[in-house]
């Protein structure tokens, strides 16, 4: 995909040639502004386009000491071995379940938060809640992971402290050793980290609602809830739909950093292994470059297809990305 576009780009320079002067000479004459952009484009070429070209090793058998040109071509061998791999079922199931859960809970949560914040009339209270809930977004996953493991820790964790204190459990629970809890921990942590910051966009959209609409509605006797449902929500719908398309396009991004950080216990692999962490483990740790690239490419292709479908559906409703 990348390669064709690049060639197209260079080939299309030709029609820009005007008969009076050669392209090279005209570019030399504006060397000062060309010098502003060309170094940046070279960096983009090196760090974005060369890796795109490097995806071709998915169709080769990568050998140490060889380069992209001298590796033997093997066609779809690595894709086939992924489709027959014993991990295929676990990895695909985890990817789909985790990303669907993240979407189903993580997508509406900030909208609900924005709607709730909009009902708050005490400005001080509103600002305090916003300041606190935006904070985790700016923390690295390492810090978040440290906080979560501390809260859920067997010996010093406050969660176990409360559970034991209220006699809800007899023994403290070792949350990170029980696979059944992992998805809940992962999704809750994600929502907890991003809910505040993600609500900013929706709050801005809500701020654009015409106040007269609320006045008219309350004169007609509509309750606050009805006003949210009949005025606020329909007004912010276009924003919601655009963000929904973006979310659907990245549905196969079940997570990477968060899972690497939270699922350090290999005993959790049956519930924590997703495509991205699998590619990381196979590629970086086991050095199976060609196979890992093939798995990554498979994911990228499925993502593009899903984004296209989501956009086509959204176009029917009049809100599309392109």
């Amino acid at each position: 995909m990348a390669r064709t576009t690049v060639t197209k780009g260079t080939a299309n320079h030709t029609p820009m040639l005007k008969p009076k002067q050669r392209l090279g000479i005209r570019m030399m004459k504006q060397w000062d502004i060309q010098l502003m952009v060309i170094p940046a484009l070279v960096l983009i070429f090196i760090f974005s386009y060369i890796p795109m070209y490097g995806v071709l090793i998915a169709f080769q058998d990568y050998k140490v000491g060889h380069n992209f040109f001298s590796n033997p071509w093997v066609g779809f061998k690595h894709f086939e071995s992924f489709f027959h791999a014993p991990e295929l079922y676990t990895v695909m199931r985890n990817t789909i379940v985790i990303s669907l859960l993240k979407f189903a809970i993580g997508f509406p949560a900030p909208i609900v938060l924005a709607l709730m914040l909009n009902e708050v009339r005490l400005m001080f209270f509103k600002r305090v809640v916003q300041t606190i809930t935006y904070l985790p977004h700016f923390m690295s996953w390492v810090i978040i992971g440290g906080l979560v493991t501390t809260m859920l820790s067997v010996d010093i964790g406050s969660v176990n402290g409360v559970l034991v204190g209220l006699n809800l459990v007899e023994e403290p629970i070792n949350f990170f050793s029980i696979p059944e809890y992992f998805w809940t921990i992962l999704i809750t942590t994600n929502v907890w980290k991003e809910i505040g910051f993600a609500s900013i966009v929706y709050l801005a959209a809500i701020a654009g609602v015409d106040p007269h609409l609320y006045e008219a509605a309350s004169m007609d006797g509509a309750s606050r809830f009805k006003q949210i449902y009949l005025i606020t929500l329909p007004t912010i719908m276009p924003v919601v739909i655009i963000f929904m398309i973006l979310a659907i396009g990245s549905l196969l991004n079940a997570g990477f950093e968060d899972i690497l950080i939270l699922a350090t216990n290999p005993g959790l692999r049956s519930v924590s292994d997703v495509i991205d962490t699998y590619v990381y483990r196979i590629g970086i740790s086991n050095f199976r470059f060609s196979y890992a690239t093939a798995v990554g490419l498979f994911k990228a292709v499925v993502s593009v297809i899903m984004l296209t479908i989501a956009n086509a559906i959204a176009r029917k409703s009049g809100n599309s990305l392109w």
Binding site: A2, I46, G54, V279, I284, T293, G296
Partner: peptide, 11 residues
């Protein structure tokens, strides 16, 4: 579009 983790690592 991007090359992904492994091609970037090799680069």
């Amino acid at each position: 579009f991007g090359g992904g983790l492994i091609p970037t690592y090799m680069l």
